[in-house]
Write a protein that binds this DNA or RNA. Structure first.
Length: 691
RNA sequence: GGGCCCGUAGCUCAGUUGGAUAGAGCAGCGGUUUCCUAAACCGCGUGUCGCAGGUUCGAUUCCUGUCGGGCCCA
């Protein structure tokens, strides 16, 4: 609503409560009535008061309505339903106020620190699938919501470049002959090596994403092979040892060093694939922190010191965890009911668990670890040598962490981390480890830091048994009876992000061809595809499992991205057409200023309904920031678009003869355009020039 | 065994934090284009809000239990 109006109304209502009934008003809620005819704002305060005053809510509302001192913008009050106190705004002046306000960011509370949002975090050993897309798009929309609200945000995409999954592909590359389907494994391996040999340049004639696809298949082969040949497990251990040793600067023999180098190149090259995929859908980052650098910079050593000093880590001298450093969790209420709540931080062989590294990283993000990374610009280059990726502002270089100052960009020191708040976008299956990390931060002596971090948990993207089988995966009868099956990189079971995007682009092109004679401008089909995808990924509540359905994902009608885009395109077309036929299009400042003089009758209910919907944009953004429920924004966008499409058919402008009516409609249209563009911008739904 | 999530129309989902006649999209049927692009619009809906209790003037919403499905920890 209009900035300030809400507060004015709230204080007017509570003042009346005190004056009329001598009671302190309960919290004043203002909602939007279900229909325009019922007004612009509704206050259910009388229902609350009915409890205290022991009188019928409707009577209370009527008394309040009579004596209320109203803000200037409110022209009428009424009592509706069982006791709603409703307010009607001065339409011309409200419209003017909304156009004057535009989409200015609200005032940010002074001293609001930097928010760090961590998302994407795909293991760099295979192509991204649609589950990763949900993570990235949710994270990205959260980021833009906060940015839209004026908060400084830093986006981090954490790379587990020293993990088991990378090691698995390396084992497969180096032992292709020992894998199941060894001839296929060899072919995959050879092609992967060719691509890696060209990296950090580009293998000529090879599509950039080819590596992700090959690694996807090889990884699945590797996983299957462990079961068939247990000796491979030993090779995996050796590989991991080599990778970690290289990161921590151990003396390695030639073979181990070569293995680690290969792993590094694989991870680097696959990360590039992921960045390209994410760039396709408009997702970007500011920093890529690497696990190898957490090891190299001895983050864990520091975190471990803090934990030991605070008495939060204990060396087990007996039992099954003999020789391990654990964090005992029995006492914590959150971990009640667990038989063995102790979390291993350091294994008896001296290696740090994933949790341990995560704790160190989390402490760093929260600014309490006490040491920092070095940084460098990400080295990925286009064929012409220009940087392939930028930071989220679109111009700054994208950075990644570095283990030492040799070759590091010293000007970047201290620029990253140290967030006043941290949001980790990780699916709900990681709730337990996330809880452990948070608890570790608390116990390391930083309870207030722990309170500044939240786990943004969302449900997974799964496949319907039918769609899994359509991908050629063999399912058990048990799987077939399930409502959905989990995607699994290990099983090679999943829909790759780029494949889905290709299908969307293909379909968009078909649709474009079906309705236009001239060939579309470059990027039009891609824009539509991205719009469809982003809306599909965000329109469900985050705690809902998405059972992926290809037809649903490919839908362009109804509650979809193209529906939103079409509204924006049509709105732009109207202004263009108006100017073409010599009429005024957009309102200039003077015309906006004069809107207050418009007769109220020019803004009928049909027209006003849409404006009323638009008035909730800022509230919705704030609600998204508070609840971290991104789908609220999508639904708001759909409501604005639906309102617009309705208006389109009922309130023509170019054909309208009366200038005043036209002006009223143009003004309403302009409000809708501004809000639609605003919301689509935050959602990352691009608007093509035409549809 | 413990914890978390889901259950609303044939299907996929909303439901403004306990209130107005429980709403959208899809699918189906019918209609709208000499008009700012029909990716749109208009019309057509009797749903045990999983089930049973409880709190309340009022419960899809809160509490307890229970059934079914999913995830995580052990």
């Amino acid at each position: 609503m209009i900035p300030g109006l809400k507060r004015e109304l709230e204080s007017a209502v509570s003042e009346a409560c005190r004056r009329v009934f001598g009671v302190e008003a309960p919290r004043i809620v203002l909602e939007t009535p279900p229909k325009v005819e019922l007004g612009d704002l509704a206050c259910p305060v009388a229902f609350e008061l009915a409890k205290v005053l022991k009188r019928p809510p409707r009577k209370i509302a009527e008394e309040l309505a009579l004596t209320l001192t109203l803000p200037a913008l409110v022209v009428k009050r009424s009592v509706e339903g069982g006791g709603y106190l409703n307010f009607f705004l001065d339409r011309p002046r409200t419209l003017r106020a909304m156009l004057v306000a535009g989409n200015a960011a609200p005032a940010v509370p002074a001293g609001a620190g930097k928010l760090i949002v961590e998302h994407t975090n795909i293991n760099p050993n295979k192509a991204a699938h649609i589950g990763h897309l949900r993570n990235a798009v949710l994270g990205d929309v959260l980021v833009s919501t906060f940015k839209r609200l004026g908060r400084p945000v830093e986006i981090q995409n954490y790379l587990d470049d020293t993990g088991v999954q990378v090691a698995d592909v390396i084992v497969a590359l180096q032992n292709a002959a020992d894998l199941v389907e060894s001839s296929r494994a060899k072919r995959l391996g050879e092609e992967i090596r060719e691509i890696l040999d060209a990296f950090p340049g580009h293998a000529p004639g090879v599509a950039p994403r080819r590596l992700g696809d090959l690694a996807w298949d090889l990884y699945a082969l590797a996983v299957r092979s462990y079961a068939a040949d247990p000796s491979l497990e030993e090779k995996r251990r050796a590989t991991l040892h080599a990778i970690e040793g290289a990161a921590t600067g151990d003396d390695l023999d030639e073979e181990a060093a070569a293995t680690a180098a290969l792993a590094g190149r694989l991870a680097d090259a696959v990360v590039r694939c992921h960045l390209l995929t994410m760039e396709r859908v408009g997702v970007n980052y500011d920093l890529l922190p690497r696990e190898s650098d957490i090891l190299a910079r001895r983050f864990w050593v520091k975190a471990f010191e803090l934990l030991k000093k605070a008495g939060a880590a204990r060396l087990e001298t007996e039992g099954k965890n003999l020789g391990c450093w654990v964090m005992p969790l029995e006492g914590a209420p959150e971990f009640e009911g667990m038989e063995d709540a102790d979390k291993i931080l350091v294994r008896s062989n001296g290696t740090v668990t994933y949790t341990g590294k995560d704790v160190a990283y989390q402490l760093w993000k929260l600014g309490v670890l006490g040491i920092d990374f070095e940084y460098e610009e990400v080295p990925y280059r286009d064929v012409d040598g220009s940087p392939e990726f930028h930071a989220s502002d679109g111009v700054s270089p994208l950075y990644r962490t570095r283990h030492d100052e040799v070759g590091a960009d010293v000007s970047a020191r201290g620029r990253f981390g140290n967030g006043s708040h941290v949001i980790n976008v990780i699916d709900v299956r990681q709730s337990y480890p996330q809880k452990v990390v948070r608890e570790a931060v608390r116990r390391a002596g930083f309870p207030e830091a722990a309170d500044r971090s939240v786990h943004f948990a969302y449900e997974m993207v799964a496949l319907t048994p039918a769609s899994a089988e359509a991908l050629g995966v063999e399912l058990t009868d048990e799987d077939r009876a399930r409502p959905f099956v989990e995607m699994s990189g290990r099983r090679g079971l999943g829909v790759k992000a780029d494949d889905l995007l290709d299908r969307l682009v293909e379909k968009a092109n078909d649709q474009i061809r079906a309705r236009a004679s001239e060939p579309p401008e470059a990027g039009r089909a891609e824009a539509i595809a991205v719009g469809a995808l982003r809306v599909y990924m965000t329109r469900f509540s985050r705690n809902k499992v998405i059972a992926f359905d290809l037809d649903e994902a490919l839908a362009f009608e109804g509650d979809t991205g193209p529906y939103l885009q079409y509204a924006a395109v049509r709105a732009a077309n109207i202004f263009r057409k108006l100017e073409e036929i010599g009429l005024k299009g957009h309102l200039d400042a003077a015309e906006i200023d004069g809107l207050g003089a418009l007769p109220a009758s020019a803004l009928d209910d049909g027209l006003w309904d849409v404006v009323r919907t638009c008035s909730r944009t800022l509230d919705t953004l704030e609600k998204v920031a508070e609840s971290l429920e991104v789908s609220l924004l999508v639904r708001h966008a759909l409501a604005v678009a639906a309102g617009f499409h309705h208006l389109y058919h009922t309130h023509p402008i170019a054909q309208e003869k009366d200038e005043t009516t036209r002006r009223a409609r143009r003004a309403a249209l302009q409000v809708v355009s501004v809000h639609l563009a605003d919301v689509l911008g935050v959602l990352g739904v691009p608007v093509p020039g035409r549809m």
